[in-house]
């Protein structure tokens, strides 16, 4: 069993079925990507994995422990990066991080300083005074510096600028090389494509693709000369339904 294991996860909001029987397994040392259209259920699935949302049924296991009875000490091994994570205190970020780092024995201060200095983030203000991108960067810096075993990241690509995206993707690569696992949900396929080891594509609350880049190539048309890109594959997976929808609308 891997680091994260999901079994038959279902999520209903009253009569709306957002996730339909999702099972997946994340192994250590890999970079996973969860792709899907808006409203496909990516964020709900992410929130269920990180424990910000409760599944209607099914079981989530982290480090082979049920999320329901997950010991809080093990949170040092997980880094969650999402816009929902806010370091919202009246303290300046410098003071806050001085307090925050004491929770973590493996805190890598030099990595933290490197990221903060490289990105030229001034830590003298309280969290709410920063822009969305800066907030996300500070959370990223903190969670990377924790030296966790897994990073669970929700939609950073849409918040960060191109330069920062590339910088952090590089940092994530380094993290992976040191044995870390990354689970990333995103809409920006092209930039992350080369970094991903394994891809999940979710559509209407169901995982419709679960495989690596080689598995994508198996779906290539025989007449195609170029290798099938993730973006094209993704759009092919979603195209038929759109046509159907158009036909329905025309009718």
């Amino acid at each position: 069993m891997g680091i994260v294991n999901l079994q038959n996860i279902k999520k209903n909001y009253f009569f709306l079925n957002v996730l339909k029987d999702i099972s997946l397994n994340l192994e250590a040392g890999k970079f996973y990507g969860l792709l899907g259209e808006n409203g496909a259920g990516k964020s709900t699935l992410f929130q269920i994995i990180v424990g910000l949302e409760r599944p209607t049924s099914g079981c989530v296991k982290l480090f082979n422990k049920n999320l329901e009875s997950f010991p809080s000490e093990l949170k040092t091994e997980i880094g969650i990066i999402s816009e929902k994570i806010e370091l919202d205190t009246p303290l300046s970020m410098e003071k806050f991080f001085n307090f925050y780092r004491k929770f973590f024995q493996k805190w890598n201060q030099s990595l933290f300083d490197e990221i903060i200095n490289h990105q030229k983030i001034d830590l003298s203000k309280p969290f709410k005074k920063y822009s969305r991108g800066q907030k996300m960067q500070m959370v990223l810096a903190a969670e990377l510096s924790k030296s966790p075993k897994i990073l669970l990241i929700d939609e950073i690509t849409s918040v960060l600028d191109v330069y920062s995206r590339l910088f952090y993707l590089k940092k994530l690569e380094d993290f992976k090389e040191n044995g870390g696992t990354i689970f990333l949900t995103t809409n920006v396929i092209t930039e992350v494509e080369n970094h991903l080891d394994h891809i999940f594509i979710i559509k209407n609350g169901k995982i419709i693709f679960n495989g690596n880049k080689d598995d994508i190539q198996k779906n290539k048309c025989p007449l195609d000369k170029k290798p099938l890109s993730l973006e094209v594959f993704f759009s092919r997976l979603h195209a038929p339904e759109k046509e159907d929808n158009n036909n329905d609308q025309a009718a």
Binding site: E73, K75, T76, I80, I85, E86, L87, A142
Partner: peptide, 16 residues
């Protein structure tokens, strides 16, 4: 409410 926004990443129990 504000603590809960970051404590999810820290080893703090909910009872605590």
């Amino acid at each position: 409410k504000n603590i809960s926004k970051w404590s999810v990443n820290a080893p703090i129990s909910k009872e605590g």
